[in-house]
Design a protein around this nucleic acid. Structure first.
Lengths: 118, 118
DNA sequence: TGAACGTCTGACTTGATATTCATATATTCT
DNA sequence: AGAATATATGAATATCAAGTCAGACGTTCA
């Protein structure tokens, strides 16, 4: 985490400090982290298909407890991935915006029908 | 983690079990997890720019110790994100394949010049 | 050959994350 | 009002990931 001067005799490249600055990397990483859990991933792809699901159904679709699911959903909500709508005693979740939806599409497309290479 | 029968009186949607099966979700999540760390993210985007960098340079570019960096690189290597080439006493890393490179491009594009909505 | 260098590795520590359990709140139904 | 339902929440625990440190290994150089 610090720059102790040792073992960096010669540089091989100009050390690109372009493309992604620290702050952007943080934001991007945080959002990707939300998608880096199998459960959350299945939830959000379920949402991508049906548009709206309540907590109970999401829990069932992932095979996890409703409490655990609620916790996960809160995270995703705070992370701006999903939005909640309360109707009666249940709460329906949906994907937050087109932005997120596009990211999902793009990732799925890439992994699901990308050329087989792994 | 289990299906205790409680609180699932009525279903609101057909519960889509399509798009992403459990196994795919696991694989996809694992790969996304690799990209969900600011350090790894900066490393790999640095690699996307210069094609090849040695451990020392990668460590410097991220501002982290060489040991920590080596650990991270091993993960990324095992995860199939990067490849190593040893030359003399240093080891050069590069992005594993076009597949990965495309994913990076697509993600960057999406976050960097996507429409401002967050 | 021995010293310096670059990288890797394993053990340990620390911090983050996920799940469970118990409980709280709000809503509908009788 | 009271019981049942749906979700949320907090504390406690368990699991996992990241970084550090010390040392190993292979490589170059004097």
């Amino acid at each position: 985490m610090e720059d102790t001067e040792q073992g960096m005799e010669h540089r091989h490249a100009p050390l690109p400090d372009g493309v992604i600055d620290v702050e952007t990397a943080n934001v991007l990483a945080e959002r990707l982290k939300m998608l880096s859990d199998p459960g959350r991933l299945r939830m959000i792809y379920a949402l991508a298909e049906v548009d709206e699901l309540c907590v109970g159904d999401l829990a069932a679709s992932v095979g996890s407890s409703e409490s655990a699911t609620s916790h996960q959903l809160r995270q995703m909500r705070l992370g701006g991935l999903v939005r909640a709508r309360k109707q009666g005693r249940e709460v329906f979740y949906r994907i937050a915006d087109t932005h997120v939806r596009q990211l999902l599409e793009v990732i799925a497309e890439h992994f699901l029908h990308g050329d087989p290479e792994h």
